[in-house]
Nucleic acid binder design. Structure first.
Lengths: 140, 140
DNA sequence: TGCAAATAATTGGCATACAAATTATTTGCA
DNA sequence: TGCAAATAATTTGTATGCCAATTATTTGCA
């Protein structure tokens, strides 16, 4: 089988290329693409547990620790501890992040639209279905 | 737009999940998924320049430096310098890597087949076309 | 021919990304 | 009630992955 025919390689390649498009558009805001996706996830659902956030963005909790460190250092989020359960930490958007909400949401929509618009209605439907079918759950 | 509808997020998520499937199957050979893909690319075309290899696998040359370091340390490849051009380095598979060729090619084909088989003939065609359309060249 | 520009690869710096181990806290059951 | 098991997050270690800068070599042109 030719190298280019590998689904995993193909997905990874396009994924990296697309990430760069986001990177270039996010430089002005001082955040990376993974940090950006976390903020978008938090715009959708603020004040949530790290474990919940890690499920949402499909990244290991230990990966989030680092990204959240940098987002917190940049003043975009805060780790909030509540007395009910001192084990858990809630991630909350700061005023700074709220202020950027419109801007970042626009980058989010426009960039996705940039790629989305290359596909026909039919292709979009099939693509979604294919992504759903390729998702890995608990099997090999 | 809902978070899950972002093409880039969707691609990255599935890409990471699929990488894990390869990872689990490669543990026994002592190589990582990126190292594996490099070897597969070399099985297809051995004795090639690093620059050529980096185009083939769509990774930055500086990224390859590290992966090749580890492959070389593991005895899978060698950096070969030729007198015609002392700037260039050719990457060559070792006997050890050649010996593993059948095994690794089988992992490569079987794992891809695992995912490929989840799609219908039509979906495969559309998927290829979509990946082609989403590739980023020199535009935003 | 000589030297600036181009090319090939590496280095250094930073940010993911995951797995295994660890810490702190809470649960649940004997 | 007490303590083992479960849970939440972090830490540690290793490996990507990219970019900008650097080193070494080769090209090409004035």
């Amino acid at each position: 089988m030719l190298f280019q025919d590998c689904i995993c390689f193909s997905l990874g390649k396009v994924s990296r290329q697309m990430a760069k498009v986001y990177r270039d558009r996010l430089i002005q805001y001082g955040i990376s693409q993974p940090q950006f996706f976390l903020l978008i996830a938090l715009y959708e659902e603020d004040d949530i547990l790290i474990t919940r956030l890690s499920e949402k963005v499909a990244l290991d909790k230990s990966t989030l620790t680092g990204i959240l460190d940098r987002l917190e250092r940049g003043g975009f989020v805060k780790r909030v501890s509540r007395p009910e359960n001192r084990r858990s930490l809630y991630i909350c958007l700061t005023v700074k992040a709220q202020t950027l909400r419109n801007d970042l949401t626009q980058v989010y929509n426009e960039t996705n639209q940039l790629f989305f618009s290359r596909l026909s209605e039919h292709e979009r439907g099939v693509f979604d279905e294919v992504m759903r079918k390729l998702e890995v759950t608990s099997d090999d």
